[in-house]
């Protein structure tokens, strides 16, 4: 069996003198949604940053479509087909929604119209508010713009760092539904989520991290049904 499409293998890294991740492995296939969950401080966001190259790996490697990309800078990884939606500050607040999308397409500015139209079917807000500065949008709307901006880079992998932070519960449902549609189009989606129960319920694959190590790995359904996982991370029940 060949490698997964995106594979962060046995990653060890951290800030300063301390390591936060200890030999952690994350992977996702095309068309699949993988979710990283775990308690606070488990290294969820760190794992995502490591995979995207915002942190230097101390051990391990990151491979995309079989190619080792461990040494690429984040902008190079964007060019290689990785889209990243940071948790905060993920739009250009004084640029209009439309300009935000254009910036997403900065590296390959062809067919912008077609791409925007396609995305507008997923996120109608892009059309409705197209001339409004992104900073004036609500948290949920801004999150949609952020995802759409990342999608404009035409990624093969879309990485979302806590996309539901600051989004009202109703819109969370909506946002997850859109993300599923994105995955259905054949894109690999990797999500870090606080909201573990909801995220696992739609994930094809879940990684439960504890203290920087893989504790449980399995399909979302399996993890949700695993009594150990439920006991420790999903608040019992």
């Amino acid at each position: 069996m060949s490698d997964p499409f995106l594979l962060g293998e046995a990653i060890t890294c951290g800030y300063g003198d301390t390591n936060i991740l200890h030999g952690c492995t994350i992977s996702v296939e095309k068309g699949e949604i993988a979710v990283i969950v775990g308690p606070n401080g488990a290294g969820k966001s760190t794992a995502m940053k490591a995979v995207f190259g915002l942190l230097t790996l101390r051990e391990g490697s990151v491979r995309l479509g079989g190619q080792d990309i461990s040494t690429l800078t984040p902008p190079d990884r964007v060019a290689a087909g990785m889209g990243f939606v940071p948790q905060t500050n993920n739009v250009f607040p004084s640029l209009t929604v439309r300009e935000n999308l254009e910036m997403g397409a900065y590296l390959c500015p062809h067919d912008i119209e077609a791409r925007i139209e396609q995305l507008a079917q997923l996120f109608p807000i892009l059309q409705e508010r197209s001339r409004q500065p992104a900073g004036e949008l609500s948290g949920g709307q801004r999150q949609q713009v952020a995802v759409a901006r990342a999608m404009m880079t035409q990624p093969k992998v879309l990485m979302l760092d806590e996309p539901t932070a600051g989004v009202s519960p109703i819109l969370v449902q909506e946002l997850f539904a859109r993300i599923q549609e994105i995955a259905a189009a054949g894109i690999a989606v990797l999500i870090v989520e606080q909201n573990a129960r909801q995220a696992l319920s739609l994930a094809d694959k879940g990684f439960v991290l504890v203290q920087g190590k893989n504790r449980f790995t399995g399909t979302g359904r399996d993890l949700l049904n695993d009594p150990d996982v439920r006991q420790s991370f999903l608040g019992g029940g």
């Binding site: 301390t18 936060i20 401080g41 966001s45 905060t88 609500s138 948290g139 932070a165 600051g166 009202s168």
Partner: peptide, 26 residues
Amino acid sequence: MMNPPRRPSPVDSNVVDTQAVDARTG
């Protein structure tokens, strides 16, 4: 010690949607 810096507290992540305006735009 295991906390990466600049992690939001759980309270932050429950901010309601009505906070329309980014703090930086005033």
